[in-house]
Nucleic acid binder design. Structure first.
Lengths: 326, 326
DNA sequence: GTCAATTACGTTCTCCGTAAGGATG
DNA sequence: CATCCTTACGGAGAACGTAATTGAC
């Protein structure tokens, strides 16, 4: 009373060979067992599918009618299995990742490019979103995992630290602090500061530090790092920006200066839902994340601040070209 | 290692209910068995399809990918089974029949009309062919069975007598024999006779009788019974025609007269291939054939020859109308 | 008589159910 | 601790293979 793929295969084999003996061999069973299989199939579908005697085997009219469906069933099964197989071997698949704009500007695209080169059949989707939205996308399953400075709650999310990156002071090249090899947070006392969006993780993390340093909040609050750069350039104040976001905010008239404070770093986590499988493709990308982390612990002091602030990170080549650095 | 329809159903049930307990009930198995079924399915496809703990059940990315195929597989299986079921219940199907023109002119169409009214979903195909071609069509399987005056060899064909029908003399109304209630073959001695096609069964059967009666062969040899009528009307001679062919050949100026000779009858067989199944629809029509046979053993003598020659057959109403009979 | 499909029958293995185990909220 | 999925284990039935039977040419 149940159609199995095995019986469908038996039907197709007998349809093609028109010989029980040959079809049985193809199905790796004895002629006796094969005969019983055909009998079970006919019982299952409720119709005689083959006219046969010891000499000839041929399809009945019902067998002809069933043949169409049998081929389709076999093809669908085959297609389903091979798709899963292709997904397992990363020949096909889809991975969606959410990350903050500071990481989607350069670091993550480089990483994705390498992954895509290795697995061109896997479709990649990258959501550049602020921290809260990143967690929401992970939670809803719209993305396979997220990369974020803010870790979610440990009940729903599994957050693994990827790396920490330093915050840097961004100011005009003509600023008094611009020529310093490094500055301390305390050095910023009394300075006007332009903030990034309060829903982003940067603001949430730098706020305590800045408050402690007794800076002056200009009240300006921008979503785009590019806008931030414009405000600083126009003299609205200085800002504190994580290293991998510099690309979006720096320009010729601005300078990034390392902060000496050890606490002036932000963590970057890879974040996935607990108790939820990743596809093979997503898992491969998830596992590839740590490998692309480069040591950025100590920006080299001295030299033009811009260059020294980002010495060994992967963003350097493009940034160096853009600035015409040495 | 083997996908069964049962496991596909289990997948669909769990996908929909997202509860092992409920899905198990739907599949009429215990929760334990159902859990094992899902396990077997996952082993068969080589991928985990559901993320589950004691609280939540959800599809993995592979599960989502497999879902599409699973629905298609289930649909194909369902479609195949229901088609066979519809064929068995005569809701659908196809029957092809071969028969000589003398029977496809009226008798068989009436029969088919009744069958079609009972089973409107069954497509009917009727081949009007001469005797030899009829057997060839049956042999090749192009038709499900044939109705024929010539039986095939008993090794390949199974031939069952449906009925016998009388031959009648067809002549001009002004013929000397036209007013007779019946004639004997011997009465035809010396008369010119127009023949039907030599490959047809009529010629093959009437030839010995005519030869014995010492008639004059005009050499005319026509394929269409209508042509035969025209030739007779124009005075080329008389002819001998089986009863159910009269419709095609009679006209106002012609008369059919019963032949008294007991041997002047021809058999009509239903013929199918041995050791070959018929579809349910074909079998139903095959079985319906004898029921529509009406007694035509003794044409009633006296009265206008035309009317009396075809007293109780099913062709009468139409013929009566066409001729404006009493 | 020979070859091929089927049936008979014993064995193996799959599959299910009951019951115990374990994890989650 | 209550619920739900899973594992353990034993039994019923399915499925297979060997061997005997039937049937066609």
């Amino acid at each position: 009373m149940n159609l199995s793929g095995r019986l469908i295969d038996a039907f197709l084999a007998l349809e093609e060979t028109r010989r029980f003996v040959l079809a049985a061999r193809r199905c790796h069973v004895s002629p006796s067992a094969f005969s019983q299989m055909i009998g079970r199939l006919e019982a299952a579908v409720g119709a005689r599918l083959f006219d046969r005697d010891t000499r000839n085997v041929s399809l009945t009219p019902d067998g002809v009618a069933f043949s169409v469906g049998a081929h389709r069933i076999a093809a669908e099964i085959q297609a389903s299995l091979s798709e899963l197989q292709q997904r397992a071997s990363l020949e096909t698949g889809r991975v969606a990742v959410a990350a903050p704009p500071s990481l989607t500007a350069d670091w993550l695209p480089r990483l994705l490019a390498g992954f895509h080169a290795r697995h061109p059949g896997v479709a990649l989707r990258l959501h550049d979103v602020v921290s809260d939205r990143c967690l929401a996308l992970v939670s809803s399953g719209e993305v396979d995992f997220g990369v974020n400075a803010q870790r979610g709650n440990d009940i729903e999310f599994e957050s693994l630290l990827l790396f920490t990156e330093p915050f840097l002071l961004v100011c005009r090249r003509d600023d008094a602090l611009a020529q310093r090899a490094s500055v301390r947070m305390a050095d910023l006392k009394g300075r006007s500061v332009v903030q990034t969006l309060r829903s982003g993780s940067v603001w949430q993390q730098t706020q305590p530090l800045l408050a402690k340093a007794q800076v002056v909040d200009t009240g300006l609050d921008v979503a785009q790092l590019g806008t931030l750069g414009g405000l600083i350039e126009s003299g609205f104040g200085i800002s504190i920006v994580p290293q991998r976001a510099l690309l979006l905010c720096l320009r010729a008239s601005l300078v990034a200066v390392p902060l000496a404070d050890a606490s002036a770093r932000r963590p970057i986590y890879r974040i996935r839902r607990r108790r939820r499988s990743l596809s093979a493709a997503a898992l491969a990308l998830w596992d590839a994340l740590p490998e692309s982390v480069q040591d950025d612990a100590v920006p080299v002091p001295g030299g033009p601040a811009l260059d020294s602030a980002i010495p060994q990170t992967s963003v350097r080549p493009r940034l160096a070209r853009a600035k015409g650095g040495r």
